[in-house]
Structures are given as C-alpha cells and as structure tokens.
Design a protein around this nucleic acid. Sequence first.
DNA 1: ATCGAATATACGATAGTGCGTATATACGAT
DNA 2: ATCGTATATACGCACTATCGTATATTCGAT
Lengths: 104, 104
Amino acid sequence: MLTTLTALAEPTRLRIVELLQFGPRYVGEIERLLVLTQPQVSKHLRVLRDAGLVESTADAQRRLYELRREPFVEMGEWLEGYRRSWEGHLDALAAHLEQSGDDP
Amino acid sequence: MLTTLTALAEPTRLRIVELLQFGPRYVGEIERLLVLTQPQVSKHLRVLRDAGLVESTADAQRRLYELRREPFVEMGEWLEGYRRSWEGHLDALAAHLEQSGDDP
DNA sequence: ATCGAATATACGATAGTGCGTATATACGAT
DNA sequence: ATCGTATATACGCACTATCGTATATTCGAT
C-alpha cells in the first residue's frame, strides 16, 4: 500500500495516472498531452512501473503504457477496512487492538 | 486527492493512520504504541491534520486524535473512476478524451 | 505561584526526490 | 550501413522533507 501511495503522491505522476485512466498511451502522447519533457515522462513511468501501477508493451521503438488493475483493487480493499471501522463492524483484530492499547 | 495521497505516502504517517483506524488515540499513546519520539508524532499529526485526515479534541493538556471520514470517502469515489473505466462504462468525458488525444 | 506532565514548535543537519541537459539504446526506413 | 525517431538512462543541482535535540506552551495539581 505504501508503495502505491508513494508512487501516486507526486503531482506529475498523478496526472499521468489520471490520463491513463482513459486508455493506454505512448510515451510521446503523454509528453505532448501533459506538456512534459520526454525524460520526465520516462522517469516517472519508470517509477510507476516499479510500483506496479503501469505496464508497457513494445510496439517497434514505441512503448504503450497502461494501468494495471491490481494496485487499485488493493487500494479499494484497504479502504474497506476504514469503511468497516466507521460502520462499527470491528472484526476480531480490531477489537483486540481496541482494548490492548488502552492505558492501564 | 494529491493532498491526501501525499500525507499518506510516508511510512510513519501511514502507521499512525492505520493505528487510528481502530479508534482515537492520545499523542502519548501513539508515541508509545508505535515507538516514536514525541516531536515526531506531533509533527506527523500536524501534517495529517493540515491534510484533513485527522482532527483533534482537547482534553486538558492532552489531545485526542481521530480520523476524519471525508478524505477516505473521497478516495473511494476517486477509485470509482478507475473501476468504471475498466468495466468499459466510459462516460462522456472519458469518451471525449479517448479520441481527442489520438495521433493524427 | 510553582511544578510536572503533555503537546507543539524551532532549528540545524542530512537524505531523498525531481528537474534539466546530455547521452545512450533500440528500431524502422532508406 | 546510415539516419531519424522514440524511449531510456546518467549526472549534477536544487528543493523538500524528515529527524534529533532543544525549547516553548498549556494546563492541572499542590
């Protein structure tokens, strides 16, 4: 989760991710649409790929980048924990932590 | 969204947030449970508060911190956009961006 | 009023991160 | 083989963020 959050917590990378939400893009397209330098795009895509947020397929010398579903699914599941806690449906672990941390 | 992500994209802060998931805590509790220095906790809580992720209520000289729901709800809504895009239910904006960005 | 406990802030040092420029690499076209 | 296009990487610099230590502030207790 921290890996995903760290990758997304950068303005330019978040913009790239939001663009890719609407479909795969080549590096050159991203560069042009978001008005970025080419190395900037490549560098950020590298970080996003290392974080597992995007994957690329080669098309001659061009690379098509697209989002991977997994990290977003994971984020959804992670958020579930918070939703549950507010709905008062604390599971066993939560209940345990709830009392074990109280001041003696 | 960027504000929320930036606040969460720090190991110690994420740990604090995950702890607060199970209920409000005083600064001293967080310090003790997560084995952090006191200024470290205060500083991170300040960042989390500025980002709107937590709020505090005063109890004498102690401050009880708890999570705010809004940013997490927002994250859920933000994720919805990605879920929709994968399910092929592109809305008008998405469809527009889908074609307007193609190479001529 | 004074003291101790709880929390917040200031400040200097350090490390990590992103940017720009230059360069390397891969591939299709000729 | 050579050239142009597309993408990736290297390197130096600047900025930001985090940490540790010290100090300020607030409040209850005495």
